[in-house]
Amino acid sequence: MVFQYAFFQNAVMAGIFAAIACGVIGSYVVVKRLVFISGGISHAAFGGIGLGLFLGYNPLLTAIIFSVFSSSILGIISKKAYQREDTLIGAMWAIGMAFGIFMIYQTPGYVPDLASYLFGNILTVSRIDILIMIALNIIIALIVFIRYNEFLAFSFDEEFSEVTNVPVMKTYIVLLSLVALTVVVLVSVVGIILAMALLTLPAATASLFTNSLKKMIIFSILIGIGYMLLGIGMSFFLNQPSGATIVLISGISYLAILGIKSLIRKS
């Protein structure tokens, strides 16, 4: 049986851990409307991967440092500038990607499999990658659990929470850093470019079924796990690229559920 192979077990585990991180952080990305800035963060993370390959470290580790750093900078400048936040995000988006590719081409004697970082290849996930994913999940869950009420107040009404002396800049940077960590969790599963899909689609699907943020987080974890397992299974048995299959499954499921729901509401 295929289920006994280590690479398949790793793939399933990676999918589940990715779904947990996405369910938690994706819910905030959706309700706080951080989709575009998350796009910037995930693409900028590619700079960290390039750096890791060049320096000879595990690229996930350098991506953590690089993307937390760039998301903090992004957070600070987008709050300090009164306008043109989207321009800054766009610039960061492109610069991060360009830096990553530039570093990879400086790496002597190594022709890396670029596609697996850009679009993911869940069947090449290693034990170490899994350990990194577990550690990141623990960090994400712990911070969200401890700061739940603060994140809720901040996400709902940033201005009011600032008046009640919630440290909004700090909270925003922590939230963006958690997005960055989630992106790193997603790299090996769906890759940098497709990460946005898993940050938004499970949470968006969950939001169709509940009006409570807590339930939305739980539902999107479960829905995400469903999408992952379905996607991994299909990609394996039909011999298709894993990242793209997972994203297509997620996207089609979301649209189908959205359609069914609006049909039911009409009748």
Binding site: V31, I146, E150, F156, N165, V166, S207, N211, K215, M216
Partner: peptide
Amino acid sequence: NFPINVEQVILSGRIGHTDFLRR
């Protein structure tokens, strides 16, 4: 569209008075 109910909104007025865990 934000998934929050009336009580949670009003409680958020108290957030400045909560402890480290924000309970």
